[in-house]
């Protein structure tokens, strides 16, 4: 029992810490990368304190409401999104010591990422306003399309590890990282990750063509919490990607947690670059491409990884 309590406390604090730092890092990276792509001077100090100023401004703003909105589900949606990100991060081994050894880790991760759909849909639905509503529906279409590739690449990574436990998957990359062993895995995963954190090319639910879509009717704390939850999801998927494809805590010289943090930040940065460089795609087109290209490719990827895993064991 005391062991368990210690585990709970350690996990909760480490997840909380990782999420806070990750969200902060995401916002800073977003600004730095955005400005460098725009060709503007960087102004690093401003980038570093900016997130706090912004958050303070939103905390001091009134929370808006709409006519006959479903206020209960509207309140739950951001909390659910944030909680899902936290829960997903809990099974990602941040260091070899702090790892929840969930033997169906990637099933669990897949479940939390699928639930993101519920949170975003609710956030769009609850406002009783057309643009958020369309945004919510867009996310459902998008989620139904990217969910399968997301899960399939994780299954492929589980093959050589012979386990669904994320920590086992990290350990299986002792000799060779999955990013090399399964070259298709990371790109597919990143596409799906952009989808799950509704960013950039797949930021369809809150596009400007919907005046902000799911966030169009949000203000003040509600907006702050929603953006924080979105960044938290980005952190969670990036951490998972770092663990599954970039060898997690493995790495020379530095302690495992530092490696993990660096790799996660690298993936976050990659996705933020994608956000700023790739425009919003057409949803209709993405759905077809996802079913006709991404899912078959992900399946082929699973089988190829399987054959490679068999050969490695055989030899």
């Amino acid at each position: 029992m005391t062991d368990w309590l210690v585990m709970v406390v350690v996990t909760t604090t480490s997840v909380g810490l990782a999420l806070t730092l990750g969200i902060y890092g995401t916002v800073v990276l977003d600004r730095v990368i955005g400005r460098s792509i725009a060709g503007e001077p960087l102004r690093l100090t401003r980038a570093l304190v900016g997130p706090f100023q912004h958050a303070a401004l939103l905390l001091l703003q009134q929370r808006s409401d709409t006519e006959r909105s479903d206020s209960a589900t509207w309140a739950v949606a951001p909390a659910l999104l944030g909680a899902l990100a936290a829960a997903a991060l809990a099974v990602v081994p941040l260091t070899p010591a702090v790892a929840l050894e969930v033997s169906s880790g990637i099933v669990y991760f897949g479940a939390t990422m699928a639930m993101v759909m519920v949170a975003v849909f609710l956030n769009g639905w609850s406002a009783n306003s057309t643009f958020p509503l369309i945004g919510g529906y867009r996310f459902v279409a998008q989620a139904l399309s990217f969910e399968m590739p997301l899960v399939l690449v994780l299954i492929a990574a589980a093959l050589p590890a012979e386990s669904l436990n994320v920590a086992d998957i990290v350990r299986s990359q002792d000799t060779l990282w999955n990013v090399v062993r399964q070259p298709l895995g990371l790109p597919l995963y990143l596409i799906a990750a952009l989808g799950v954190s509704f960013l950039g090319p797949l930021g369809l639910p809150d596009g400007i063509d919907l005046a902000g879509g799911t966030v169009a009717e949000l203000s003040g704390t509600a907006l702050l919490l929603w953006r924080a939850a979105q960044a938290a999801v980005l952190v969670a998927v990036s951490a998972m990607g770092a663990a599954v494809f970039l060898g997690g805590w493995l790495g020379p010289w530095l302690p495992g947690s530092v490696w993990m943090a660096l790799k996660t930040l690298l993936l976050i940065a990659l996705m933020v670059v994608a956000k700023h460089l790739f425009g919003r795609v057409r949803l209709e087109r993405f759905v077809v491409v996802s079913w006709v290209v991404l899912i078959p490719v992900a399946l082929v990827h699973v089988f190829l990884s399987g054959i490679l895993a068999l050969r490695r064991i055989g030899s």
Partner: peptide
Amino acid sequence: AALIVFVAGL
């Protein structure tokens, strides 16, 4: 523990 993290996040 994961469930508790979820509740804590919420």
